[in-house]
Amino acid sequence: MPFVQAVTEFSFLLPPIAELVRGALVLALLASVVLFFRPLLSGLVRAFILTVRPRLSRQERAARQQRNALSGRA
């Protein structure tokens, strides 16, 4: 069986395998980018959370802690 005939006969297997390899490479690249920029991404998430729900002031936290202590909750 000549090489060209063998390759064309089994070429139906190449596209699905190539797509799987390509998908795995894209997934690995995405994971490596996320791991590399993890500190930046976590900082952006924390900044967004503080924007949506600001932190209580020191006096408000002390008042809440005192109120919780008086009501019996820890």
Score class of each variant (00 low, 15 high):
32 S>V: 15
32 S>H: 02
33 V>L: 09
33 V>G: 06
34 V>F: 08
35 L>I: 06
35 L>R: 10
35 L>P: 00
36 F>H: 08
36 F>Y: 13
36 F>I: 14
37 F>Y: 13
38 R>W: 15
38 R>P: 00
38 R>H: 13
38 R>F: 14
39 P>K: 01
39 P>T: 11
39 P>D: 10
40 L>E: 12
40 L>P: 00
40 L>Q: 13
40 L>A: 15
41 L>Y: 11
42 S>M: 15
42 S>G: 00
42 S>N: 12
43 G>R: 01
43 G>H: 05
44 L>P: 04
44 L>F: 10
44 L>H: 08
44 L>Y: 12
46 R>G: 08
46 R>E: 08
46 R>T: 10
48 F>T: 11
48 F>K: 10
49 I>L: 13
50 L>H: 15
50 L>T: 07
50 L>P: 00
50 L>A: 11
51 T>P: 00
51 T>N: 14
51 T>H: 05
51 T>M: 14
53 R>M: 09
53 R>Y: 01
54 P>K: 01
54 P>N: 11
55 R>D: 09
55 R>V: 14
55 R>L: 11
55 R>G: 00
56 L>A: 12
57 S>G: 05
57 S>I: 04
58 R>Y: 08
58 R>F: 04
59 Q>V: 03
59 Q>F: 03
59 Q>T: 02
59 Q>E: 10
59 Q>D: 13
59 Q>L: 13
60 E>N: 05
60 E>A: 08
60 E>F: 04
61 R>I: 01
61 R>P: 00
61 R>H: 02
61 R>F: 02
61 R>G: 00
61 R>D: 02
62 A>C: 02
62 A>W: 00
62 A>G: 03
62 A>N: 01
63 A>P: 04
63 A>R: 05
64 R>N: 07
64 R>E: 03
65 Q>A: 13
66 Q>M: 05
66 Q>D: 08
66 Q>G: 01
67 R>Y: 02
67 R>P: 07
67 R>S: 03
69 A>S: 10
